[in-house]
Computed example of a mutant assay.
Amino acid sequence: MTTSTPAPTSTPVLSSTPVLEAVDLVRRFGPVTAVDHVSLRIEPGQTFGLLGPNGAGKTTTISMICGLLSPDGGSVHVAGVPMAQEPLAAKRRLGLVPQDLAVYPEISARQNLTFFGRLQGLHGAELRTRVGEVLELVGLSDRAKEPSKKFSGGMKRRLNIGIGLLHHPDLLVLDEPTVGVDPQSRNAILESVEALAGQGMAVLYTTHYMEEAQRLCDRVAIVDDGRVQAEGTQDELIELTGGVDTIVLSGGGDVAAAEVSLRGIPVVQKVARDGNHLRLVVQNAPTAVAGVVRTVSDAGMNLSDVVIQRPDLESVFLHLTGKALRD
């Protein structure tokens, strides 16, 4: 895939103006508060990640940011334009790539892009040129004439991203764009995002895949239970763990009993279970691992693997919430 894209034709965002400023967003569904005073700020050229498990409130947050849901409290400005007061002007400054595919299966990739480009106000030679550029950017030039129903899931996702890019948005919002795609397509999507960021586009990227956030994002907000638990660069977030390590135990036998036993020893700060895996937060894992192995073995867990990990974003999430990222 090519990583080049032409200079945008839309009015550039001044560096002193954030591309996105969301302040104290609140959204309730009956008695449930899905988003609880979430604030985000994204600068030009920045890739900002919302990292959290399914159901954390990520999609509800971006639905308010994009004007698809009205917040019960708080405000959104896109490139300085208030979403509540000037929704059409604000929406013109962003491109949304939703979780659910928004393409027409019976028509070709080129026809899909042409249709959506017209909806976004592009016409004539400008539209034809831009469709060709986007097809090249998302790696679909050689399949441009085929109906999208013949595409793989990953190709459809890439076409979806292309639709969001047509009008040169100041902010591209990607909601879980790699869910359900094969590894090759997933890597192509991530390369596309990296290319866009390299060209100065601001990106808001929601994911529950820690490795995607680590690869792509300049700043990350860790979201759980509708709240931002922490926000910063990866190094800033990792500092929140106090330098603790993670031990991952895998095996069979009585894993539940092993989890209970681990909670009773002082060296273990937190434990999260995912099937036959136990993820532990500990201080100085090389020193602690012998006692940990002894404890789980005595509890009836048959170990097949023990892995010591340096702090990463998943460690931060476990440290902040007491549970694994995909719980």
Rank of each mutant, 00 (worst) to 15 (best):
171 L>C: 07
98 P>H: 05
195 A>V: 01
239 E>N: 08
231 E>A: 15
281 V>G: 02
8 P>G: 02
112 N>Y: 02
90 A>P: 07
31 P>K: 12
252 G>C: 07
47 T>G: 01
313 L>I: 06
37 H>R: 14
260 V>C: 00
102 A>N: 07
272 A>P: 03
12 P>C: 10
112 N>T: 00
188 A>E: 14
237 L>Q: 12
70 S>M: 14
44 P>S: 11
171 L>D: 10
196 L>H: 02
277 H>S: 08
91 K>T: 06
59 T>P: 01
192 S>D: 14
55 G>E: 07
281 V>M: 07
48 F>W: 02
176 E>T: 14
105 P>E: 00
169 P>D: 04
40 L>T: 02
134 V>A: 12
26 V>E: 13
74 G>N: 08
195 A>C: 05
118 R>M: 10
276 N>Q: 12
227 R>G: 03
11 T>L: 13
144 A>S: 13
200 G>L: 10
154 G>T: 08
131 V>C: 09
225 D>A: 15
259 E>P: 02
217 C>K: 07
137 L>M: 15
295 T>K: 12
290 A>E: 15
318 L>Y: 13
158 R>I: 04
86 E>F: 11
207 T>D: 03
212 E>R: 10
171 L>Q: 10
46 Q>D: 03
20 L>Q: 12
167 H>C: 00
326 R>D: 11
56 A>Y: 04
6 P>F: 01
237 L>Y: 10
280 L>C: 08
15 S>W: 11
